[in-house]
Design a protein around this nucleic acid. Structure first.
Lengths: 229, 229
DNA sequence: ACTGTTAATGACTCAATGGTCATTATAGCA
DNA sequence: TGCTATAATGACCATTGAGTCATTAACAGT
């Protein structure tokens, strides 16, 4: 095995252990995170049922049995994987909104750009696939993801819109009443990259620009609307 | 089995065979469609790998072996199921756009309402889940869906936007250059219903209104923008 | 160095399920 | 009313893969 470690895609194995040539390494601390990482990648690729624990193990550079030292069963690993990737992105930002000095126009641009960077062009993208694919089977999962990420995002958007209305920059209307739709194009971009991009590629920039253009003109009042590009 | 047919959710069985009390019925014509339907539902619920052919069979009111008279294997049934649901919705509509007598405002409203009716509140929704979930594993599938549905939708939206620009009703800009984003909120609505609606319900109407509001103000020129509600 | 603890292994079990096939019942026809 | 072709059955096989566990070996403390 030590020999084949170099080959085989995606195998995690620190240089240390390769250099030392030792077959077994006790890595009590790092192992769980590595297994979770490997699990997330496999789950994203094949879904829960389609993922083989042996593949996860190989990807993490261990043997299947090792997984069971750290996780009770397949489901536990799955939930842990999702839970790890659900990082508390929105925690501190929310408060920062009210103190933001610039216009709502700049604020919206900033937020949309951030969402594209965080959601469309990162590992979070595959998590979106997992949530959609396995949501029905694991309600715990959608609940967790909603509580940890989506609901915070909603609050964030709500703040921005309310602040904008108070400053007379955002037009009241149906869209302002459901600020969630303001990030819909980013969701679409994330999904597109995972599905149709192979057959009909659309650049991230095109999506981002269209998104910003649509939203700024969609919710700002007349004077604030100029795209400026 | 004839007795239990009444119980058990989702079992397809025509009244005829129940009334007659016969256990076996030869139904050469209807069987494939029923199996496909049952398969689609199971696949949407559990994914490709997670679906048991025995469950599909039971849902269709037959026995597992019967499936293999009509389909070579699990994958064949899966592809057939997706292929059936991919209906040529946009075929005739596209030409009709140019001849549309009303304003772009009305046309956009009409289209958005249609998309919500067809995509969010119909069986097509589960297809969206399947495409997203299994797209990576079955490129044939995304290609088919893109060619049959998405690309036609894109053409349709393109026409509307071009017509609007020509009539001086649609503002040129990044959004007009990627009309796809104009239906992003509908995609979000469809996904929402399948994932978070259980934890945080949002009415179809709220999504629809926000969608219309955002898009009309997002791409129409000043004078055409009034929501009028 | 010696030793106890336990991380890691890999061979194993067993249940689940995709797929096969000989047998049986049904519908259409002579 | 039989006869034939074949749709449908259900028992069966083979494989896969989750989960177990006795054994092995790496590390920490002495």
């Amino acid at each position: 095995m030590t020999f084949w470690s170099f080959i085989g895609d995606g195998i995690i194995m620190n240089e240390e252990s390769i250099a030392s040539g030792r077959l077994r390494r006790r890595r009590k601390e790092e192992r769980p995170a590595e297994l979770i990482r490997a699990g997330l990648e496999e789950f994203a690729l094949h879904g829960f049922a389609g993922t083989r624990l042996e593949d996860v193990a190989r990807r993490a550079g261990v043997v299947k049995g090792t997984i069971y030292r750290y996780f009770a069963d397949k489901e536990a690993l799955f939930l842990a994987a999702v839970r790890m990737e659900v990082s508390p992105v929105f925690s501190q930002i929310t408060g920062f909104i009210d103190a933001y000095p610039g216009t709502t126009r700049d604020l919206l641009k900033l937020i949309i750009e951030t969402v594209h960077r965080q959601l469309v062009n990162s590992d979070l993208r595959v998590l979106v696939r997992i949530i959609i694919a396995e949501g029905e089977r694991f309600p715990v999962l959608t609940e967790l993801y909603y509580a940890e990420t989506v609901s915070k995002g909603r609050v964030l958007l709500e703040r921005i819109v309310q602040r904008g209305i108070a400053r007379g920059e955002v037009r009241e209307g149906a869209a302002a009443r459901l600020p969630l739709v303001l990030v819909a194009p980013a969701l679409m971009a994330a999904i597109w990259r995972m599905t149709f991009d192979r057959h009909a590629p659309i650049s991230s920039e095109a999506f981002l620009e269209a998104h910003i253009d649509l939203v700024l003109h969609g919710v700002l009042v007349g004077d604030e609307r100029e795209t400026g590009q």
